[in-house]
Amino acid sequence: MAKTAKNGRNTLPPREILFPLLETMQLIRAFEEKSGQMYGLRKIGGFCHLYTGQEAVATGAISVLDLSRDYVLTAYRDHGHALACGMEPAPLMAELFGKLTGSSRGKGGSMHFFSAEKHLLGGNGIVGAQIPIATGVALAQAYEDSGGATLCFFGDGAFHQGALHESFNLAKIWNLPIVYIVENNQWGMGTSWKKVSAQSDFVATAAAYSMKGLVCDGMDVLNVRDVVGEAVEEARKGNPVFVEARTYRYKGHSMSDPQKYRSRDEVDEYRRRDPIVFLRSRMEEAGLIGEEDWEAIVQRTEGLVEEAVRFAETSPEPSLGELYADILA
C-alpha cells in the first residue's frame, strides 16, 4: 500500500517556491542554533527540544497548506513548525525566555507554541496526545464543510501510543480530512525505533485502517512537499492519509541529553545529507542561486534571530498577577 510519490528529481519548481523553502529552513536552523546558545547561557530553562536536521519536514509539509482554513498540530519539538506556519521569531524567542511578550505570554515555554491566528494548535507535551485533538479539528472541518484539512505531526516515539491507533480508526470511519505525519527521526528519546516497533515499515500500518500510506524523504524538502501535497489533496476529499517522513535530529532529544546511545558517525552521516545544503546545491546546479543570494538569506535570517533575542531580552517579565489569568474563558 505504501508508496513514494513521484518527485520529478530533475525538474525543480519555480524560484518563488524554492526561495521561501530555503529561507524558512535557514530561519529554523538559525533560530534553533540561537536557542541552543541561549539555553547554554541559562536564558531558557526546562526542556528545550531542537529541530535541527528535521527542517525539511515542517517546511515542506506546511508549505502546501492554506492556513486560512487548514490547521497544524505537533508535539513538543515545535519551534520549526511554528516558524513554518509564519509565526514571528521575536514572540517565539520571548516565549522561550518566559516573557510577557511571548506567544503564550510566558505561560507555555518551548513545548507550547500556539497561534490562533496562524492555526497552529500546539506545541503539545504529552507524547501522542495531540493526535486525537488534531483528529477532532478535522472533525470540525468536516462538520462545517470548510474545505480545510489538518496536518498532524508526531515523532516515531508516539507511534506506539493507543491514542494514535484510536484516532486512525475514528478518522477513517468518519472520513476526516487529516494527514498524519510521523517524523521518524529514529530515536524516541534514547531508544531506537527498531528496538520498540513490531512493525519496521510504519506506513504499512495505514492498511490496517484502510488508509493510504505514503513515504517521503524527510531530508529533501521538495520530496516532502510533493508527497504531503498529494496527501493533503486526498485528505480534502475525506480520505485520511498517513505519511512517514524519514529524517534525523542532529541534537539530543532535549538540551539535557548526553546522547550516549548513538555514534558520532551516525550523526555525521546524516549531516552530509543536510536538507539545507541539499536544496541549495540543487538550486546552484540549476543556476537558480548565487553566493550573493545565499549570503542575503543568511543575513536576513540571522538578523531576525538577533532581533528576536534583543526583543526577548528587553521584554518585561509577567507580573505575579498573571498567575491566575488565562485559565478559564
Partner: peptide, 13 residues
C-alpha cells in the same frame, strides 16, 4: 481516549 480527544479538538476548532 480517542473520542474524548476528538471532542477537545472539535471544541478548539
Amino acid at each position: 481516549l480517542g473520542f474524548t480527544g476528538l471532542g477537545v479538538g472539535a471544541a478548539l476548532a
